[in-house]
Simulated assay, not measured.
Amino acid sequence: MKPNIEVFADPSQLIERALELTLAEIKDAIAQRGRCTIALAGGNTPKPLYEQLAQQDLPWQNIHIFWGDERYVPISDPQSNAGMATKAWLNHVAIPPTNIYPMPTQAADPAEAAQTYNQQLQTFFGTGPKEFPRFDIVLLGLGPDGHTASLFPHTEALQVCDRNVTVGNKDGQPRLTLTVPVLNQARCIFFLATGANKQDALTEIFAETADATHYPARLIQPIHGKLSWLLDTAAGEPLQKYL
Rank of each mutant, 00 (worst) to 15 (best):
K2M: 03
P3V: 05
I5P: 03
E6F: 01
S12D: 15
Q13N: 08
I15D: 06
E16D: 15
E16P: 00
R17D: 14
L19P: 00
L19G: 00
L19I: 03
T22W: 02
I26Q: 06
K27D: 14
D28M: 04
A29M: 11
I30F: 06
A31F: 10
T37E: 02
T37C: 07
T37R: 05
G43D: 09
T45N: 02
P48N: 14
Y50W: 15
L53E: 11
W60R: 06
Q61E: 14
I65L: 13
I65G: 04
E70T: 12
R71T: 04
R71V: 03
S76M: 05
N81R: 12
A82L: 01
A82Q: 01
M84Q: 13
M84L: 15
A85L: 06
T86C: 02
K87I: 05
K87H: 14
A88T: 07
W89G: 01
N91Q: 14
H92P: 01
H92D: 12
H92W: 10
V93D: 08
A94F: 05
P97E: 15
T98K: 03
T98S: 13
I100Y: 02
P102L: 13
T105V: 13
A107M: 12
P110H: 10
E112P: 00
A113F: 00
A114P: 03
A114Q: 01
T116N: 02
N118R: 11
Q119K: 03
F124D: 07
F125V: 11
G126D: 00
G126N: 00
G126C: 01
P129G: 13
P129R: 11
E131D: 12
F132G: 01
R134A: 03
F135D: 08
D136L: 03
I137H: 10
I137Q: 11
G143K: 06
G143E: 08
P144M: 04
D145K: 02
G146T: 09
T148P: 02
T148Q: 11
L151F: 07
F152E: 05
F152R: 02
P153K: 11
T155R: 15
T155L: 08
E156W: 03
A157V: 04
V160H: 09
V160T: 09
C161F: 06
D162K: 09
V165E: 05
V167Q: 08
N169L: 12
K170S: 02
L178Q: 05
V182I: 04
L183K: 05
Q185H: 13
F190T: 00
F191L: 10
L192K: 06
N197I: 08
K198A: 08
Q199G: 00
D200I: 11
T203R: 15
T203F: 06
E204P: 00
F206E: 03
D211W: 01
D211E: 07
D211F: 03
A212G: 02
H214Y: 01
H214T: 14
Y215I: 15
H224A: 13
S228R: 05
A235W: 15
G236Y: 13
E237C: 01
L239H: 12
K241A: 13
